[in-house]
Design a protein around this nucleic acid. Structure first.
Length: 499
RNA sequence: GGGGGUAUAGCUCAGCGGUAGAGCAGUGGCCUUUUAAGCCAUUGGUCCUAGGUUCAAUCCCUAGUGCCCCCA
């Protein structure tokens, strides 16, 4: 029973005794009691009803939920129960339910799952309540709940025992309701545009589609290593080759990197691909999506994240990587931002470690990440990324050093990444070869060469634009959550020590 | 990887070099419209772990571990 050999908490022992008594009477875990109403519904429908109305036309309801408060006052008692929609107060009188049932109720504990049948009425203070005729304990709760006023505030417990956090903290429940609404909204938005939702492999033979370190696992029957995907990109584009001209996937990707307020090893990403479009189409699409999302969720397009205002109603600022760097680093010579030796010097002055094999594009992005990213508070599209760090993006027609790519930043963090897709199989072959060289130099984030993907491109990928959005980060912004763990139901933590 | 914070009752938190306290929750009692109900009584602790200093450590020192924050 108890997993440790420590003596059990007295509070639990007390409740276990009560459960044993229920068991002895044959009433331990009944499952024949049904419900006809939810707390939230009752408030919505009857909050304006007067007692006269209830007396003229009695409303009988069957309700059930977790008992969150209990106030016993002699021969009358109040309790509030909580269901998925909210809370409703129960009112019991000993003379109404009988002495035996009433005494039984007095022995119930906060956290017990209970059922009641009764009629609606309004108390002296005007609170809509159920006058109970009959009650039943459905599930005995053995673990005591956190304190009713402060709830559960210890971060570690909130994450490790999310179920307790959800029971007692309405604000936590709300975050995950909003999260669900966000994903729902995105689905219906894309479905309305005739996108097809698909699912592609999470276990991949080659971990492609992003520059990131993968998790490795082993498949016994195939006798080979498999990788948890770092991105679904290459499979989704195969589907565009196959003729699904608008596809998206919302699901987990995995990156074997550090954990922080912005990073969880598994995270949820939306990736979508749209044929016969370029990155500017996606920038407009994303801007519209975010604007309508905010409006649908909150009825407004201005929101506040951690004290700073985010406006979704006005067009996002657009700036190139090189322009943004020049703004934040006025001492740099803008004419030499593609000059390897110059960039190496600049990195040295900025305390950025320089890898031996890094080219100018890589160094430019290092400088961007170090000096610009955090400053981008207002929604900003950064464009014109170096081809060197974008091995799957289409080269810009007027400047082959660059690709047709953008990233969206706000509140100092990256939220989305999109580009016109590289659909030239011969250029893609060359880019993969460059990645392999980087890998040989020890860059374990470099992409592997994917022969089958090249073959797919050789069948012909229409001109296509693709976009990835970090759903967790989006939820953080829209729920004003400071840490990614606040928007993940079960964030990864180090295992607890067992002693 | 580096720096800072934190770890005391089931929960939220005080506290002090002399083995510990409040509120809530629990237990017993009073109370028939309460709502952070109230009143009386009362139970409950490996003070994160391991060493060290000391007559004496929950407190001071060292190391470790979890969690939070910042930096790389």
């Amino acid at each position: 029973m108890a997993e440790s050999n420590r003596p059990e908490n007295k509070l639990v022992a007390e409740r276990r005794k009560k459960l044993a008594a229920l068991r002895a009477d044959g009433f331990a875990f009944p499952n024949t009691f049904r419900r006809t109403a939810l707390a939230g519904q009752l408030h919505r429908v009857y909050d304006e009803h007067s007692n006269e109305a209830f007396e003229a036309e009695p409303v009988e309801v069957l309700v059930a939920g977790r008992m969150m408060t209990q106030r016993v006052m002699g021969k009358a008692s109040f309790a509030t129960i909580q269901d998925r929609s909210g809370q409703i107060q129960l009112f019991l009188q000993r003379d109404q339910v009988g002495k035996e049932a009433y005494d039984g109720f007095k022995g119930w504990d906060l956290g017990d799952i209970v059922w009641a049948r009764g009629t609606l009425f309004r108390t002296r203070t005007g609170e809509l309540s159920v006058k109970v005729c009959e009650m039943q304990l459905l599930t005995k709760s053995l673990q005591p709940l956190p304190e009713k006023f402060h709830g559960l505030s210890d971060q570690e417990s909130k994450y490790r025992q999310r179920y307790v956090d959800l029971i007692v903290n309405e604000s936590s429940r709300e975050v995950f309701r909003v999260r669900s609404k966000i994903v729902q909204f995105i689905r219906s938005y894309l479905d309305a545009m005739d996108f097809l939702e698909v699912e592609t492999p999470m276990m991949q033979i080659l971990p492609g589609g992003a520059l990131a370190r993968p998790f490795v696992t082993y498949h016994n029957a195939l006798e080979r290593d498999l990788y948890l995907r770092v991105a679904p990109e290459l499979y989704l584009k195969r589907l565009v080759v196959g003729g699904f001209e608008r596809v998206y996937e919302i699901n987990r990707s995995f990156r074997n990197e550090g954990i922080s307020t912005q990073h969880n090893p598994e995270f949820t990403m939306l990736e979508l691909y749209l044929a016969y479009a370029d990155q500017t189409v996606l920038m407009d699409l994303l801007e519209n999506l975010l604007r309508s999302l905010a409006e649908s969720l909150f009825g407004r397009t201005e929101l506040v994240y951690q004290g700073q205002e985010l406006k979704f109603d006005e067009p996002f600022r657009r700036v190139t990587v090189e322009e943004a760097i020049a703004e934040q680093n006025p001492e740099l010579d803008t004419g030499r931002l593609r000059d390897l030796d110059y960039l190496r010097d600049a990195c040295g002055r900025l305390d950025i470690p320089v890898q031996e094999n890094a080219g100018p594009g890589k160094l430019l992005i290092e400088i961007f990440e170090k000096t610009v990213e955090r400053q981008l508070d207002k929604p900003t599209y950064v464009t014109a990324y170096p081809a060197e760090v974008s091995p799957l993006a289409r080269r810009s027609s007027d400047d082959p050093w660059l690709v047709d790519r953008f990233e969206l930043f706000m509140a100092g963090r990256e939220l989305a990444n999109g580009f016109a897709e590289l659909n030239d199989p011969e250029d893609q072959d060359e880019r993969f070869r460059q990645q392999m060289e980087q890998k040989d130099f020890g860059d374990d984030e470099a992409m592997p060469y994917d022969t089958d993907y090249i073959r797919a491109l050789e069948y012909g990928l229409p001109p296509t634009a693709g976009l990835g959005i970090g759903i967790d980060r989006l939820v953080m912004l829209l729920t004003d959550s400071p840490s990614i763990r606040d928007v993940l139901l079960f964030p990864h933590l180090r295992p607890q020590r067992e002693d």
